[in-house]
Amino acid sequence: MPLDRLWELLAKKLSGEASLPELDELTELLRQQPEMHYPLQTITDLWHYHPPHNDDPTAAYDRHLNRMAAMSVDFNSPAEDAGIEFTAAEEETTPQPSRNRKLLWATISCLLLAVAAVWFLNTGRDRQSSSGPGNQGTYTVPTSEVSTGNGSKSKTVLPDGTQVWLNAGSKLVYNKDFGQEKREATLTGEAYFDVVKDPSQPFIIHTSQIDIRVLGTAFNVRSYPGDKTTEASLIRGSIEVRIHERPEEKILLKPNEKLVVNNDPGATQVKDIVHKAARKAEPLVVIDRINYWPSDSTILETSWMDNKLIFRDESFAELALRMERWFGVEISFNDEGLQKERLTGIFKTETLQQALDALQIVSPFRYRIEGNKVYLFK
């Protein structure tokens, strides 16, 4: 019964019809059954995925009807009665759930059945391959995964009660037996952790550059592929950090401190509280204070949780990477000098176009938006 209820709640969430109590119920069911994170995330990704197309919307809709017919979905009304109308402004956007409840629920049901079938088949195959004769040495520990695409954020509760907020373009992977003998997870991207204290089982976060060991605390970790640095910012409690380049060293952080690790393997120095004038040395590790936005004392390192994109003295190239994740777009430059310009500001509720218009005030440039691609040029 709980599994049936979980699928029902997911369908309501995808259709935009889930109430707040139902969303809380879904979160609790996922906490009780962490192995379901992966199949449900797969369904969500499929539901929100929309491949690019250049032909007219009517042809695309006809292809969709053909696919649904191939999946044995019976439509009792002709396509022209489906209630979907396209305008020029809607050609590049996702059809809204309210357009046709019958079509929406049929699509969700097919996705749920298809992904559930694949997942259960793969689960059975994994059990058979890991327990069959001659396979004792090839057993792989099953894992659960929670991820967010660009332009979205999410919150999840791990089996031990630890709360995790994932920023855009991030992924958290942990063993399905999490909390039974150990608490370990691997992070790609950015996340804020509020860890439940358990002295008998330290909580360990692995990233591409550092490993973080905690007992019970709140902290933010940013480790995106392609970024120049990896950061760990401590809000409450204490954390122990080991750097992959220097595994013999342990660094302890206090509240309101942050650790910045240079992702460049050529960096070798270690400095405390490095000022701007000294940053040309590009040390391997910088132990600094967390930063506050002057107008409202927002913590810069965790401002994304308040839906604020704050940037201070960042190059346009660095800001572009953050804007890609924030708005779910791809940004390219045709001028190297434009990439090096330094920018400071804050975005809250601005659209992509409003953000670019604001940046034009302090850095004269032109831009062109084509779908989810943004071209910047002088």
Rank of each mutant, 00 (worst) to 15 (best):
I205S: 06
H206R: 15
H206F: 11
H206S: 15
Q209D: 13
I210H: 02
I210A: 04
I212M: 03
G216N: 12
T217H: 10
T217C: 06
A218R: 15
A218F: 06
V221T: 00
R222W: 07
S223K: 06
Y224Q: 02
G226T: 03
G226V: 01
G226M: 03
K228M: 09
K228V: 11
T229E: 02
T230Y: 04
L234R: 12
I235P: 03
R236P: 01
R236D: 06
G237Y: 02
G237K: 05
S238N: 14
S238F: 08
I239D: 10
I243C: 04
I243P: 01
H244C: 08
E245W: 13
E248P: 01
E248W: 09
E248Q: 12
E249I: 11
L252D: 11
L252G: 10
L253K: 07
L253Q: 03
K254C: 00
K254Q: 06
K254I: 01
K254Y: 02
N256M: 12
N256C: 09
N256Q: 14
E257I: 06
E257R: 10
K258E: 14
K258G: 14
L259H: 05
V260A: 07
V260W: 08
V261A: 14
V261W: 08
V261I: 15
N262R: 06
N262F: 01
N262K: 06
N263E: 07
P265W: 07
P265Y: 10
G266H: 15
A267R: 15
A267H: 13
T268H: 13
Q269C: 01
Q269P: 00
Q269W: 11
V270W: 09
V270R: 10
V270K: 11
K271V: 15
D272A: 05
I273A: 10
I273V: 10
V274E: 10
H275L: 11
K276I: 12
A277D: 11
A278P: 00
R279Y: 06
R279S: 11
K280P: 00
P283R: 03
L284I: 13
V286K: 09
V286C: 10
V286W: 07
V286G: 04
I287Q: 11
I287Y: 12
D288Y: 05
Y292H: 03
Y292F: 07
W293Q: 03
P294Y: 12
P294D: 09
P294V: 09
P294M: 14
S295H: 13
D296Y: 07
D296G: 05
S297K: 15
L300H: 12
L300P: 04
N307D: 14
I310N: 10
F311N: 04
F311Y: 07
F311A: 00
D313H: 14
E314R: 03
E314Q: 08
F316S: 00
E318M: 10
L319A: 00
L319I: 03
L321M: 08
R322C: 04
R325A: 05
R325C: 03
R325H: 03
W326C: 01
W326S: 01
F327K: 01
